[in-house]
Design a binder for these strands. Structure first.
Lengths: 285, 285
DNA sequence: ATGCCGGTCAATAATTTATGCTTCAACGGA
DNA sequence: TCCGTTGAAGCATAAATTATTGACCGGCAT
């Protein structure tokens, strides 16, 4: 995976100094070739050890390893971009941004996949499965987040998992008072700092329920409350592109959980088939 | 020029030791990543200084410089066959299907892009833009289709386009009676054979409104009624995968329309920015 | 034969990278 | 509010990697 995508994806979680390093590398990747860790540190007015620690935190063996990887990424990009442009311009009018959109989405999806360990996905799927067997699944999201909340709730109900979906904090607060141990609350909140959602989550935990949050990959109050948290990485300078990336990456993440639910549990799968059949019948009588 | 080509071209004029270094690098370029100059020397049973001298003779600044260049060359070369990524993501539990899901989605998105001519996308964007300027945009979808209807309606309203969204045929029927020329109806229906939606569309046409349908790429009654129709292609044998593909491809299609709306009309873009700002303010007071 | 020359190496200097330790500031709980 | 904890950042230094120096050796032309 491209180190640049990785840096980009973790940028939001970084400290100030780390973020400066990240930005410098992202903007001057080509310069890295001639920079030692010390020079990079000087350029930013920070200590050399910070640079090394930065690289290690990202999972590289050390500074030379990062440098080498960035070199590869640049080389690949130089080669990868040209055919892409050709394909896009050959494809359709206005296709430049269309092809580009697709590429950006892929990056966001990949970055998102990387920051959510498979164990977490498993754990989330398991928690939902358990709750579906012995309790209830509460789902909430506001605004655009409601779209995903709604879609996911629909899917869970197709699997025969009882879900309580709300898009209104007042009603959800009321509903949550019926929660008990073994239940799960799924909170969708891009920025994770909506006070009402935090309150609901806290209340839910007090009632011994398990809280799963889905937010951006930042340190946010909501996520801090979670038993399990799914995180999304998606960035773009263009304000009308970034939400598309966020939603696409989030959707991909949810799809992953859904697939796992289907594949890990044969009975869920069977239930899904039955429900799909039933719906089919309803649609064309 | 590629360092590997350079090495090969000068190989014939090298001394014995140099030639052994050259051969080793040419045959094991990928191993170079993890070799220091000392390790390389050990592997060949020669001195480390010979390795350094070798690199300098070739015109590199030193060993790390050669190493970096070789890294670039490899990255450029194995453009296309990168089994590492697939293997890596396929490694973990459930990862196989995760990587596969991604591939299938891409295929569906591409297929969908291919069957929707850019003129149609343009026409749809234009129609919506017109309606937003001089009339109303009605949006309806049932069940899972409602998810997309809802999401798209939300986006349009961010662009300052007045939308009337319904997920209930009775209410929509009532609303549609307020339609007039210059209005647009956007109908989401995967299979396109819901009688009530057909009726609503017909009624809408009678009132001189423009009907845009979003359905599967099949001959279906709803699509037959459309002034403009967007179509989605997405197939999979697995019943729990196919809906994911459908939704993903559909979303991508809608995103394309949305981007076009943003990019073709600066004022819409400006409106979007203003609305995003306003929302931002509301979220964190 | 002998002096020159390119090639190699061991030793070592120079540079670069990695790590241990300290300080400081922010956060949360008593 | 105070205190203990935590984590980020820098400094000093150890470790490593890389580059250079100078000595040695064998071939070769003078």
């Amino acid at each position: 995976m491209s180190p640049l995508v990785k840096i980009r994806s973790e940028r939001d979680q970084m400290s100030a100094v780390e973020r400066r390093i990240a930005d410098f590398i992202l903007e001057n990747a080509q310069l890295l070739r001639d920079y030692s860790s010390q020079q990079l540190a000087n350029a930013l007015g920070i200590s050399q050890s910070s640079v090394v620690k930065f690289t290690q935190k990202l999972g590289f063996k050390g500074y030379p390893d990062l440098k080498y990887s960035v070199g590869e990424a640049i080389a690949r990009a130089d080669n990868g971009d040209t055919p892409q442009v050709a394909a896009a311009s050959g494809g359709e009018g206005g296709g430049a941004s269309a092809g580009n959109l697709w590429r950006r989405k892929s990056e966001a999806e990949e970055a998102t996949r990387l920051i959510n360990p498979p164990e977490t996905l498993h754990a989330v799927a398991d928690a939902i499965e358990q709750a579906g067997r012995a309790g209830k699944v509460f789902i909430i999201g506001l605004g655009e987040d409601d779209i995903h909340a709604r879609g996911f709730a629909l899917k869970l109900s197709l699997l025969g998992i009882l879900t309580v979906h709300n898009f209104d904090t007042a009603r959800m607060t009321a509903n949550v008072s019926a929660a008990s141990a073994g239940d799960v609350l799924l909170v969708f909140s891009e920025h994770g700092n909506h006070p009402a959602l935090c309150k609901i989550s806290r209340y839910f935990r007090e009632r011994r329920g398990q809280v799963i949050t889905v937010t951006r990959h930042t340190a946010n109050p909501l996520r801090a409350l979670a038993d399990l948290s799914l995180v999304v990485s998606a960035h773009d300078e263009l304000p009308y592109i970034q939400p598309l990336l966020y939603q696409s990456a989030l959707q991909h993440l949810l799809d992953g959980v859904f697939v796992q639910l289907c594949e890990d549990h044969d009975d869920r799968h069977a239930q899904l088939l039955a429900n799909l059949d039933r719906i089919q019948l309803m649609l064309e009588p």
